[in-house]
Design a protein around this nucleic acid. Structure first.
Lengths: 185, 185
DNA sequence: TACACCATGTAAGGTGTTACATGATTTG
DNA sequence: CAAATCATGTAACACCTTACATGGTGTA
């Protein structure tokens, strides 16, 4: 519950940042397992401030543009640490619209099936390529020898994302092979 | 948008059923890629009825227990077929709380990391075993030689679920190996 | 006869998306 | 000087979960 709360606390714990910075982190570093729009982030920051888990300092950018740089409090650190050690039951499997379509395969002709799966395969291959190049970049620029480090956290989630995408691509390829092999028109 | 609508239409298209039957299907056959509670199903059935995509017939079970058996209409079939052929952009990657925790690995000690990942591994191994036994059962009882069939749909989504779980298990094992190998206390 | 399961619904509240709204700064 | 980006917020709505609420059927 209130998972966005911990995603934000964890990021601000790494280093102080603004709501806008958080938005960018969600789109970049966390994109392979989390996302949040600014319309959700700003109200949550207000909430966390009221709960004394974070505080902010107003900084002037340029002439008059105000931005709020948030920092985690001691109380926030304690809650974050408590959360990270919780052992919760497995979440329900995530929803997947393509798998839902695939399940109702009987509604398509063979040609339509091949077309649908091929289109999906291309999208996932592109995504996989992006992740692989991000990994190449990470390995070239960061030191992941220390397990208890932000860099190692970055590394394992990226590794996990690549393995997940690879499994998706493998699955689509297997489906396509099975469909193509069949004799039906 | 309104994905539950199509999940329900697809299931009722396979064969007429009640809201309760749908609930069971979501928990069993669709569990590896979709889920919905009865509190969401019943209002959606009402909505679909108002839109003339499904109709129902009241059937008496036993002495007086009434149940509503829903059937898809021609209009419903047309909408379902239109949906299945749509080519939509890839959905954002699903959220994953464990990956979020893993990302913030710097908040744990080495022992805590091993404990967290081992607990998660056990859960996913159990899930994988359940899926594998479901596959064994499916292959023994159903004919999947026809690609354009409900049975083949059942087969491919189960195959996909197994591959996804296997990838998760592999990832957790790799993380554990990397952590154990490290010299830090 | 108690318990598990069958069967259907509503209400309140939390989570998340899209759209509305505004304005400053930086870069080409 | 235009466009992209930085920066922050609210409103309406859709989606989903938890809890409330009720009653019948089958079986051990």
């Amino acid at each position: 519950m209130r998972k966005l709360k911990y995603a934000i606390l964890g990021l601000i714990n790494r280093k102080p940042m603004t709501g806008y910075d958080l938005m960018i982190e969600f789109d970049k570093a966390l994109a392979s397992f989390w996302h949040a729009k600014h319309s959700q982030i700003y109200p949550e920051l207000k909430k966390l401030t009221n709960e004394n888990l974070i505080t902010y300092e107003t900084v002037i950018q340029g002439e008059k543009l105000e931005k709020k740089v948030y920092t985690i409090t001691e109380k926030g650190k304690q809650e974050l640490r408590k959360w990270i050690l919780r052992d919760e039951p497995l979440e329900p499997t995530p929803k997947d619209v393509f798998r839902l379509r695939a399940y109702f395969i009987e509604l398509m002709t063979k040609d339509e099936i091949i077309q649908q799966f091929t289109a999906q395969l291309e999208k996932h291959q592109k995504k996989l390529a992006v992740l692989q190049s991000a990994m190449k970049n990470l390995l070239e620029t960061k030191d992941i020898s220390n397990v208890i480090s932000e860099e190692f956290g970055d590394y394992i989630v990226l590794k996990g994302a690549i393995m997940r995408e690879q499994a998706y691509v493998d699955w689509l390829n297997e489906c396509l092979a099975a469909v193509r092999k069949s004799d039906q028109k």
